[in-house]
Write a protein that binds this DNA or RNA. Structure first.
Length: 106
DNA sequence: GCTTTGACACTAA
DNA sequence: CTTAGTGCCAAAG
């Protein structure tokens, strides 16, 4: 069992983020739905605060349309990290969700 | 305790 | 394609 309760919305986002395997990505919408909410923006908010840029793989979160979206250190930086993970990112900053979108069915 | 902000999502024109 | 508008939610001011 895990004490999932008593946690702030942000912490839940980070925890969910850690569930994303390497070489995969998740969308803000999927995250919100996994958290049983519709706060797509609130999820991004937690990332933007960037409390643990090293511990929390915020760069594995992208827009629902497959776009990398934004990043605290710049979208370009995000793309670099994703490519490092093994995710194929187009020059336009597009990600193949059909191949790299992770599903929270754990 | 209300107002503003925001790394989003969706629809319409 | 871009611009505009609406909805959604939580954190910060």
């Amino acid at each position: 069992m895990k004490s999932n309760a008593c946690k702030s919305f942000d912490e839940r986002c980070y925890d969910l983020l850690l569930k994303i395997p390497k070489g995969k990505v998740a969308t803000y919408k999927k995250m919100a739905e996994a958290l049983d909410t519709k706060a797509y923006r609130a999820v991004g908010q937690a990332m933007n605060r960037n409390p643990n840029l090293v511990t929390v793989p915020c760069h594995r979160v992208v827009n629902s349309n497959g776009e990398v979206g934004g990043y605290a250190e710049g979208s370009a930086r995000k793309i670099e990290l994703l490519r490092e993970e093994g995710v194929e990112v187009s020059d336009n900053g597009q990600i193949n969700l059909f191949e790299f979108l992770h599903s929270f069915s754990d």
